[in-house]
Design a protein around this nucleic acid. Structure first.
Lengths: 221, 221
DNA sequence: GTCTTAATAAGTCAAGTGTCTTATTTGGAG
DNA sequence: CTCCAAATAAGACACTTGACTTATTAAGAC
């Protein structure tokens, strides 16, 4: 996992710089607070139509960012899942939640924290148009599906399906928003994240999540 | 609690309409995707400077929204806490988390769901400038402080303080982002929220949160 | 009634924006 | 080297925005 995971991406170096600059700007100023021209400027262009030229539109740019980041994350999930299933056919809940969260958390350490992807996802998921664009563009990896199934196998019996589904939703939101918050705090200098501090935070998040997933459900009329 | 909780607010009816329209627009289009002029238009003004006239600036408008919504929420917390402490001096964790979440969740039912305040908070908390503006303007209610203390009394012993603090942060984020998500889904017609469906979701959220807060913490090297 | 002040409307201006179009430059393929 | 397509730059246009300024209207005190 030391090689660059962004190879086969059909992004010219110019387009790549736009993607990276856009990520930064959006994390800082909000997806609706950033203009195409601003992105082009930040990417070192005098050409104010660079975004339009490379991606057709601002939406196209966002889709490119998603595509650029989602692939390696899913890829990492596949690798980790395969390794895990070789060890134990019935992985623990801990291992499964770890598998969901870790590849996202890893983004925070990528290239001295220059990936602001988590902040972007959190913003995309928060509102109408962008949420739909994201859901349309993330390719659900087979790993994630398999993880869901393994998790359901351990929980679905003990909980009413309505409750189980809701808790899985809570889990998904919590993972993304929590890690996104770490990202934002880190980039405001209010949180120092290195491997070890990320590790205990991640561990704690997983423990919290498992506590939540497996909590007793008391039916109250 | 049937009387209007927005009395002593020093908002003229014109200003109030601006606040309400702004809330709606921001929930739909994002805080950075809405202009002062647009808010004025949506509030029925031909006067495109209405926001500037009433609040001085867009930031002033946001502060007015926060002020308008935070008061009754804190007020409700005070009332509920007082009632709770009359029943039992050492309230359960369940009651305490309930106390944190319920006044926020209630917003979703207010006036046929016309308060989009949760969506706003979630957006404000997500990014730089707005986060700071929010933190500057929410007046921390004495109830919330008391709730924190009561919670700490039950948990701080069993967990390392670093872990405890992090879990409280997780709790806070989860409450706000989850309820905000209900808000967004509700207003896209993807979630039907009445009192009873809100109730079981809230109950489940609390159960999840308590499971998380009290989860075992395993020190790993 | 007049007067005064708050509220609303409307005008203005420089700055920024998306999109489309038209140069100009650059880096290979032949 | 020539030539051509891709990349970059720059122009143009209609539109929106925030902030400030200047009418105009409404409403209450006296």
């Amino acid at each position: 996992m030391t090689t660059d995971q962004h190879d086969n991406l059909s992004l010219s170096s110019g387009a790549l710089q736009l993607v990276l600059s856009a990520e930064q700007l959006i994390a800082d100023k909000g997806i609706d607070g950033v203009s195409s021209r601003e992105v082009a400027r930040a990417a070192g262009h005098k050409n104010h139509s660079a975004v339009n030229y490379n991606f057709g539109s601002f939406d196209g740019l966002i889709e490119a960012i998603i595509d650029y980041r989602v692939r390696p994350i899913n890829q990492q999930r596949e690798v980790l899942l395969t390794a895990l299933l070789e060890q134990q056919q019935q992985p623990t809940l801990y291992a499964l939640v770890d598998l969901m969260a870790r590849p996202l958390a890893s983004e925070l350490l990528r290239g001295n924290g220059e990936s602001r992807y988590l902040s972007l996802i959190a913003q995309l998921l928060s509102r109408g148009h962008w949420r739909e664009l994201f859901l349309r563009n993330r390719s659900r990896s087979s790993a994630l599906i398999k993880i869901s199934e393994l998790m359901a196998a351990q929980l679905a019996d003990t909980l009413p399906s309505e409750i189980y589904n809701e808790r899985v939703r809570l889990l998904g939101s919590q993972i993304i928003y929590s890690i996104a918050e770490w990202d934002n705090l880190q980039h405001k200098g209010q949180l120092a994240l290195d491997e070890s501090s990320l590790e205990w935070r991640l561990q704690n998040l997983i423990e919290y999540a498992i506590g939540g997933l497996t909590a007793n459900h008391n039916k109250r009329n």
